[in-house]
Design a protein around this nucleic acid. Structure first.
Length: 958
RNA sequence: GCUUUCGUAGCUCAGUUGGUUAGAGCGAUCGUCUUAUGAGCGAUAGGUCGGGGGUUCGAGUCCCCCCGAGAGUACCA
């Protein structure tokens, strides 16, 4: 270092700090109020309050008046309990779609709904009533309490849903308990009655003993259950000590036994064991013999062909009657048991079918309480003896009174050949979680095969777009195999079935009566049915020219809740004008059919199906065009939890509130977006934390962009596309590709792709390349230089596009960012239009950048090497030398300054040489570090007024 | 039991009609900067594509079997 310069610097040393500060003030350092820390938990509610004060949802609707409508119909959650995290997932996914479609220009109304009737609520309410000693409440009183209960939870859930950032008609939702809703539901029911779908029949249905009601398929869930498996001796008529050996896992159904089924394709054998002889199927002989302990102690007497079995008759093991054998090839198999199947037509579907085909009565000697009883179906003397009457079927502490009693009777008469515990999955009541029983009783049914309805339903399924595709198989399978729909419930909290009974006890169900009742309900609510006296009610709803029998009693049954929610297309979509499509033919499917239904995959047997069947029966068409399905919330370490439960255990929070309260809605929303919802969604601390980190990345990008726009006024400073610097043009081109990719993913509802695309763009192209590179010109170039304004023009466009594309997901943060963008017309990102982001560079320009990035790729490791060797620290201390020939060298030469900037070094020297590919060398940069811009320049020290600055900075500060 | 979906780095996802040595981001680790600083930049490690067969010149991709997870469902007599 020349002595002179050193002297100068030394003399200035005491003042150096002062000068640095001074020069620092000449930089255009970033400024913004947009905080790095989000404080979502605290600040989201503030923004929410503002939105509702300003009526944001209404403003959004107003802006889109006359636009094409996009209709997503909300599936109603139960008005019971806090919002579960899975329910929140569902609402958030819906909101992604709603916000996206709205932003893209459609009018997107959203009417949330609640399912208000049904067992879940009545169960809770009556439970509380019992606790309070109120055991004989009238149906009307129970209903009042249920309504209060439901409305209370609707208020609670409404706030929890709003907190998620979901916008909609929260003040005017649809409730299945609204009189208008109930009335339309009854009118739909009247259509079904008129068209001949509804009949009363006696057949086995699921029966919940604790809930004392019939259940639908969608109301049972499978759980493991231990049953008593018994092998029973049925004495053969006309023989002594000769028995059929039958197997059952439900001994309590033996009193209902009316027949035995065999498989005509099997061979059976008569075997002798001591003084007794048994008929057992050949394929199962070995197992039976072993279980009964007869091994080595029996002899085969003869073989009986299956088709000879029909000639046999047997004595019921403990009732005074006989039964016959029938072929049941469809269901008698050789996988377990004895090959001889005990048949109780009142307690099983196959049994029922076999009984009906052979003229057996539907005998179900069980009362509503779940106790064994005598019925009018058989003469008293043929039924169970007194010691069995009143025995409870439902097991307590693993023991069923009825099973025990039956087994005891069998034992005492030496009719029990073998007994063991048998673990299998068994249907349970979804409310009481106790095993259901099959029990035949009089119920109302919808005939699924009426007038080819099942085939029509299958055809309708085919006309709908199911996403993911396997949803089609699911619902097809469900519809194909479903039995008739049992729609009556012996409960109070529901829409009444407007049926009467005549003096003989015969039911009266007439579509005119149903419609009259609907009108009555519309005016008074459905409580009227329970409150009014029979005579009064009958006079009110009886058709004018009624010539049938008069009513002697009214039905107290209510409709299955799946009829409630399933008729929402009729009660909501076809009624609400804001949910219709104007300019379409009134009443045509186009006028009301929903674009989307979106629910969890369990709804294939639930709401998707009930909605389809009811809409099809009533309106002749499916209620939806697209059906989206999401998986369930699963616990990532479910196994770990159950394991750790053994040592103390802990439980994961289940409510949405727990997560929102800890992370804020935007993080939860981003987490929902981050995973492919068509599979199950993993809830784990680790996962949410990762998402929170990604959020910080996005937020920082916002902050960087916003903080460099503080002095930018687009009206004055915008640089035209052609005058933008190459790097600006490059990032805008990148962004337009991101924009179109993201739009495509939103269209396909692939939000996890949106997430991946955006977060990866943020960390690679934006943060590591563009933001990092452009820092120098933003900070050090003269504030009004075209170079700086070019980049600000670019940032200004990026930040707007970025806010928009994120706004369906990060509803709060995107709006917060939007507010910080200077000079905008619109005050809220949700009140903007997302038009495609148009920017395209030529192929030539693109390929130049591609080449420069390729060169950069190769320079990086060399720089890193120099850094490791302590030759340089930051990149600006380096001089990179490239030498070579050819196209690559030519591009480097043509874009010398762009390339230097891109690799973020102070100097880039290019030397024509022989080497191809380029030869790369790194050395310490020449000159000295400029105090202002930190670049190493040979011009530093040559300006007397600013001895520590480079030429560019001298110019910038003067 | 039957039907069905799923199984790619620690995490979340890509992986086109089968086609080089299976990719990305994040995280982790190490380094670097101190003009985005509870930030930024760089580098490194990480996979027998659940396992095993088969078809093929070639399989993460197609076929079969098995294992594991989820869901649906049954008449388990």
């Amino acid at each position: 270092m020349p002595l002179g310069k050193l002297a100068v610097r030394l003399t200035r040393l005491p003042c150096r700090v002062e000068f640095e500060m001074e020069y620092k003030n000449t930089l255009n350092l970033p400024q913004t109020d947009f905080p790095m820390r989000a404080g979502l938990v605290q600040r989201e509610p503030e923004r929410l309050a503002k939105w509702y004060a300003e009526g944001l949802y209404e403003q959004i609707q107003k802006r889109r008046e006359g636009a094409e409508r996009f209709l997503l119909h909300d599936g109603p959650p139960f008005a019971n309990g806090d919002v579960h995290i899975g329910t929140a997932l569902n609402k958030i996914l819906k909101d992604f779609i709603l916000k996206y479609q709205s932003l893209r220009g459609k009018q997107v109304p959203y009417v949330p709904g609640w399912d208000c009737h049904g067992l879940p609520i009545e169960f809770k309410v009556t439970q509380k009533m019992r606790k309070d000693g109120n055991t004989d409440a009238t149906p009307a009183a129970i209903r009042k309490a249920c309504e209060e209960y439901a409305l209370g939870f609707i208020d609670k859930q409404r706030e929890q849903f709003k907190r998620l950032g979901v916008l909609g008609e929260w003040d005017n939702p649809y409730l299945t308990l609204n009189p208008d809703y109930e009335a339309e539901e009854l009118r739909l029911f009247a259509d079904l009655v008129e068209k001949g779908f509804v009949y009363r029949g006696k057949k086995p249905v699921y029966w919940s003993i604790p809930c004392r009601t019939a259940l639908a398929e969608a109301e049972v869930e499978y759980q493991d259950h231990i049953s008593q498996s018994v092998y029973v001796k049925f004495p053969i008529v006309g023989e002594s000590n000769m028995y059929l050996l039958i197997w059952t896992t439900t001994p309590w159904t033996l009193p209902a036994n009316l027949a035995v089924a065999y498989n005509s394709q099997f061979d059976y054998q008569l075997i002798r064991v001591g003084e007794e002889a048994f008929i057992v199927s050949v394929p199962l002989l070995d197992i039976v013999v072993e279980k009964c302990g007869w091994a080595g102690d029996f002899e085969i007497l003869r073989t009986v062909q299956g088709d000879q079995m029909a000639e046999l008759e047997y004595h019921h093991p403990f009732c005074n009657r006989t039964g016959k054998l029938f072929a049941g090839d469809l269901f008698v198999d050789d996988s377990a048991g004895t090959g001889l199947v005990h048949i109780a037509p009142g307690h099983g579907q196959d049994d029922y079918n076999l009984g009906r085909n052979n003229g057996l009565p539907v005998y179900s000697p069980v009362d509503d309480k779940g106790c064994l009883a005598r019925t009018a179906d058989l003469p008293d003397e043929q039924q169970i003896s007194d010691d069995l009457v009143g025995k409870q079927i439902l097991s307590k502490n693993g023991k069923s009174e009825a099973n025990e009693a039956v087994i005891e009777v069998l034992k005492s008469d030496n009719k029990l050949a073998f007994q063991e515990s048998y673990e299998h999955s068994y249907p349970h009541c979804w409310r009481s979680k106790s095993p259901v029983i099959f029990r035949a009783m009089d119920q109302w049914f919808v005939n699924i095969d009426h007038d080819g309805f099942r085939d029509k339903a299958l055809a309708a399924i085919d006309s709908v777009n199911w996403v993911p595709g396997w949803g089609r198989n699911r619902i097809e399978g469900a519809v194909q195999s479903r039995p008739d729909w049992c729609i009556s419930r012996q409960r109070s909290w529901g829409v009444p079935i407007p049926a009467f009974y005549d003096a003989q006890g015969e039911p009266i169900l007439d579509h005119r009566i149903v419609r009259n009742t609907a009108d009555l309900v519309q005016q008074n609510g459905s409580n009227i049915w329970f409150e009014r006296e029979l005579a009064d009610l009958w006079e009110t709803v009886k058709p004018a020219n009624w010539d049938g029998p008069d009513a002697a009693g009214k039905s107290t049954d209510t409709l299955d809740v799946w009829i409630d929610s399933g008729s929402s297309s009729r009660s909501v979509l076809m009624q609400r004008i804001e949910l219709g499509r104007p300019n379409t033919e009134a009443g045509s499917p186009d006028a009301w059919q929903a674009d989307y239904y979106l629910e969890g995959s369990d709804q294939h047997r639930g709401w998707f199906q009930s909605s389809l069947l009811l809409s099809l029966a009533g309106n002749g068409i499916a209620p939806y065009r697209n059906v989206l399905t999401h998986g369930f919330m699963v616990d990532a370490d479910r196994e770990k939890i159950s394991k750790s439960k053994q040592d103390g255990g802990y439980s994961k929070p289940q409510t949405a509130e727990a997560y929102i309260g800890q992370y804020g809605a935007d993080i939860v929303r981003l987490w929902v977006a981050s995973q492919d919802f068509r599979n199950d969604i993993t809830v784990s601390e680790e996962r949410i934390k990762k998402v929170a980190e990604a959020y910080r990345g996005i937020r920082n990008a916002f902050r960087y962009q916003l903080s460099n726009l503080y002095d930018f006024d687009p009206a004055k400073h915008t640089v035209s596309d052609n005058d933008l610097t190459g790097l600006d043009r490059w990032i805008l081109d990148c962004f337009s590709k991101v924009d179109s990719d993201v739009r495509e993913s939103y269209e396909k509802c692939e939000f996890h792709i949106v997430y991946q695309r955006i977060t990866q763009f943020v960390s690679v192209e934006l943060s590591a390349v563009y933001h990092d590179t452009v820092k120098d010109r933003l900070y050090t170039s003269p504030s009004n230089s075209i170079r700086r304004r070019s980049t600000q023009t670019t940032l200004y466009r990026l930040v707007q596009g970025f806010s928009k594309m994120l706004s369906p997901i990060l509803v709060f943060t995107a709006d917060e960012a939007w507010e910080s963008i200077p000079h905008l017309d619109s005050s809220c990102v949700h009140l903007t239009d997302w038009d495609p982001f148009e920017f395209c560079i030529s192929d030539n320009e693109a390929s130049n950048w591609k080449a420069m990035f390729a060169i950069r790729e190769r320079i990086m490791p060399v720089l890193e090497e120099a850094r490791r060797a302590k030759q340089i620290g930051k990149g600006l201390e380096a001089c990179v030398s490239l030498s070579g020939v050819g196209n690559e060298f030519q591009i480097a030469q043509d874009h010398h300054e762009d390339l230097r900037e891109l690799i973020n070094v102070s100097q880039l020297s290019l030397n024509e040489g022989e080497s191809d590919p380029l030869e790369i060398a790194v050395s310490k940069a020449a000159g000295e570090k400029c105090e202002r811009c930190w670049r190493w320049e040979t011009s530093v020290g040559s300006h007397n007024d600013h001895i520590t600055l480079c030429s560019r900075c001298v110019e910038a500060v003067s």
